[in-house]
Computed example of a mutant assay.
Amino acid sequence: MTEFAKSRKIYIYKHDKCDPPIVVFMRAKQRLAEERYNVFYNNCEHFAHYCKTGEPISPQVEKAKEIIGDNGVAFADDLSQNFINVINLVQSSKKSIEDTLNEWRNKDDENRDDSFLKLF
């Protein structure tokens, strides 16, 4: 727990009604390799609540919906997805530029006339 929390406070939520531990464990195990994280529709709170009760809900997201509405949450989700897409594009472009520069350097190395070095 100490390593997981990294010196931050851990909050424990007690469910009024939850499923037996073996069901909770099986639900969690079933979703271990899942890569569909979404801050508004599939976050860690959705996951934990789903494992305990079978319902994927997030009280924090529900509170946000009360304040900014479903459309506000959908808009914020679109913004965050666009931001992620921009980051991925920049990272992809950076890798592509680095690959191109390395390719040019290798060609320069192959084509360089090092005969003047033989004089020394």
Results as ranks from 00 to 15, higher is better:
Met1Lys: 08
Met1Val: 08
Met1Phe: 10
Met1Arg: 08
Ala5Glu: 12
Lys6Gln: 14
Ser7Gln: 15
Arg8Ser: 08
Lys9Gln: 14
Ile10Asp: 04
Tyr11Asn: 01
Ile12His: 01
Ile12Glu: 10
Ile12Val: 12
Tyr13Asp: 01
Tyr13Ile: 05
Tyr13Gln: 05
Tyr13Arg: 06
Lys14Asn: 08
Lys14Ala: 04
His15Ser: 07
His15Cys: 15
His15Phe: 15
Asp16Pro: 05
Asp16Lys: 03
Lys17Leu: 11
Lys17Gly: 03
Cys18Gln: 10
Cys18His: 09
Pro20Thr: 07
Pro21Gly: 05
Val24Lys: 12
Val24Gly: 04
Val24Ser: 07
Phe25Ala: 11
Met26Asn: 12
Arg27Asn: 04
Arg27Gly: 00
Arg27Ser: 03
Arg27His: 02
Ala28Met: 12
Lys29Asp: 09
Lys29Gly: 05
Lys29Phe: 14
Gln30Gly: 07
Gln30His: 11
Gln30Asp: 10
Leu32Asp: 06
Ala33Asp: 10
Ala33Phe: 07
Glu34Trp: 07
Glu35Cys: 03
Arg36Thr: 15
Arg36Cys: 11
Tyr37Trp: 12
Asn38Glu: 10
Asn38His: 15
Asn38Pro: 00
Val39Asp: 01
Val39His: 04
Phe40Cys: 03
Phe40Val: 03
Tyr41Met: 01
Cys44Phe: 08
Cys44Trp: 05
Glu45Phe: 04
His46Gly: 05
His46Leu: 05
His46Trp: 07
His46Ser: 06
Phe47Cys: 00
Phe47Gln: 07
Tyr50Thr: 01
Tyr50His: 01
Tyr50Ile: 01
Cys51Asn: 00
Lys52His: 08
Thr53Glu: 01
Gly54Tyr: 07
Pro59Ser: 02
Gln60Met: 11
Gln60Glu: 09
Val61Phe: 00
Glu62Leu: 15
Glu62Pro: 06
Lys63Ser: 06
Lys65Thr: 14
Lys65Asn: 02
Ile67Leu: 13
Ile68Phe: 11
Ile68Gly: 02
Ile68Val: 15
Gly69Thr: 04
Gly69Phe: 05
Asp70Trp: 02
Asp70Gly: 03
Asn71Ile: 04
Asn71Arg: 11
Gly72Glu: 03
Val73Ala: 02
Val73Glu: 08
Ala74Thr: 12
Phe75Cys: 06
Ala76Thr: 01
Ala76Cys: 15
Ala76Trp: 04
Asp77Tyr: 00
Asp77Arg: 08
Asp77Asn: 14
Asp78Met: 13
Leu79Met: 14
Ser80Tyr: 12
Gln81Asp: 12
Asn82Met: 09
Asn82Asp: 11
Phe83Asn: 05
Ile87Val: 14
Leu89His: 09
Leu89Lys: 13
Gln91Phe: 09
Ser93Pro: 01
Ser93Trp: 02
Ser93Lys: 11
Ser96Gln: 09
Ser96Val: 02
Ile97Tyr: 10
Glu98Phe: 07
Thr100Gly: 02
Thr100Ala: 13
Thr100Gln: 09
Leu101Glu: 02
Leu101Val: 10
Leu101Ser: 05
Asn102Asp: 14
Trp104Thr: 03
Trp104Lys: 13
Trp104Tyr: 12
Arg105Trp: 02
Asn106Ala: 13
Asp108Gln: 14
Glu110Trp: 00
Glu110Gln: 11
Asn111Cys: 12
Arg112Val: 13
Arg112Met: 13
Asp113Arg: 09
Asp113Trp: 03
Asp113Met: 01
Asp113Phe: 00
Asp113His: 01
Asp113Val: 01
Asp114Val: 15
Leu117Met: 11
Lys118Phe: 10
Phe120Lys: 14
